[in-house]
Design a protein around this nucleic acid. Sequence first.
DNA 1: TAAAAAAATAGGAATCATTACTGATTATGC
DNA 2: GCATAATCAGTAATGATTCCTATTTTTTTA
Lengths: 135, 135
Amino acid sequence: MLNYSRQRESIKKYLDSHFTHPTAETVYLDIKEEFPNISLGTVYRNLNLLADMGEVLRISLGNGPDRYDGRTNPHYHFICSTCGEVMDMDMEPIPEIDAQARQNFSGVITGHVTHFFGLCPKCNKKNNILIRKGE
Amino acid sequence: MLNYSRQRESIKKYLDSHFTHPTAETVYLDIKEEFPNISLGTVYRNLNLLADMGEVLRISLGNGPDRYDGRTNPHYHFICSTCGEVMDMDMEPIPEIDAQARQNFSGVITGHVTHFFGLCPKCNKKNNILIRKGE
DNA sequence: TAAAAAAATAGGAATCATTACTGATTATGC
DNA sequence: GCATAATCAGTAATGATTCCTATTTTTTTA
């Protein structure tokens, strides 16, 4: 059975109010302000619990630590190839992708994860300025 | 400048003839037959080099070690939630996904990675047999 | 084709992210 | 309040990968 814990509540609240897709480490350091002796292990354990319950989303990037997202409605993410920032995509997940995948597949497809890559708005702007300057 | 190395050639050949999406560890252990004192670091370094040159594909699964694929034509992957097997999808990547992503995005989108999840054909079969048995 | 220069290697140490362990603390049900 | 179960903090351990260095291999040059 799952018992209440102040630490878990605080982690959930943190993710519900920060849209930066923080790492476990970032959550840990920020929540430390409120709970000075919370431990990193507790943060990891609770992020796992919350993710298992579907109350937060885990975003695995391939390199670097996992990110967490309090918005649990299905949505895609964008990862900037330059600065590494993770952003929510303003775009509906496309169910036809699963349908199409099922065409030639004899197993069961339950869903998909899609990450977009490229230059985030900020890095793109910087980049354009540099190009205009002829650098 | 990049020099020739027997080890790198062997790694490339291995990936070109094995469609199992092996981990660096697996590549290492198998190639050890031919080069008994190849080191794991060498395998990692060359997999990185090959991936950077676009001669192999790195597949990051989120949990567990990365997988590598000698087939470099763009394609999607399926990961079995039960046994963890990674399979190539027989399905064309959908360019409209990028187009749609660009609609409400002010940065630059260069591409996307999509992984499908579910039950692989083998695990699905096993599962169905268990269900029929009423277990 | 042998010596010099540059790149790659083996082997092991180091790092990073995450999980596991343990005795102390906190939450829950009576 | 007390017993029991869950959670915690702190730290050790693990797994995957990268880094480091002395040695070996490859390429260049003469």
